[in-house]
C-alpha cells in the first residue's frame, strides 16, 4: 500500500484523454491546493505516487502555494501533455475540507 511513500515527492504524470484523474480542493486565500480524490484506474492512480491529502506545491515549476482554485484548475487543464507535480503529504491540513 502507499504507506511507504516519502512525504515529499516529485511526480511526473502524462495526461490521458480524461486528464490526470484526480480532484483538487482549496485555493481560497493561501490555504493551498490539495488532492481530494483519485480516480480509480486514472493516470494519478496508476502512477501509485499520489494520494488523497497531498498538497500540491508546484506544477511544472509554477508555484501553487498561494494560487486560487480557479487558476490551479486552469493550469492543470492546460499544462500540456505532462505535469511534474511537487507534492507534500499534509493529510491533517486536508482533513478540514472533508469536515466542512
Amino acid at each position: 500500500d502507499q504507506g511507504d511513500l516519502p512525504l515529499e515527492r516529485r511526480v511526473l504524470l502524462r495526461r490521458s484523454p480524461n486528464g490526470f484523474g484526480f480532484n483538487i480542493v482549496g485555493g481560497d486565500g493561501d490555504e493551498g491546493i490539495y488532492i481530494s480524490f483519485i480516480q480509480t484506474g486514472g493516470v494519478a492512480d496508476k502512477s501509485g505516487e499520489l494520494r488523497k491529502g497531498d498538497r500540491i506545491l508546484s506544477v511544472n515549476n509554477i508555484d501553487f502555494r498561494g494560487v486560487t482554485h480557479e487558476d490551479a484548475a486552469t493550469v492543470l487543464k492546460n499544462c500540456g501533455d505532462t505535469a511534474e507535480l511537487h507534492v507534500i503529504y499534509k493529510y491533517d491540513d486536508f482533513i478540514r475540507f472533508e469536515n466542512r
Binding site: 480532484n23 480542493v25 480524490f37 480516480q39 482554485h69 484548475a73 466542512r100
Partner: peptide
C-alpha cells in the same frame, strides 16, 4: 454555518 464553501475540480 460554514459559509466558506469549498469547490472541487476534476483535472
Amino acid at each position: 454555518l460554514q459559509t466558506k464553501n469549498y469547490r472541487q475540480s476534476a483535472v
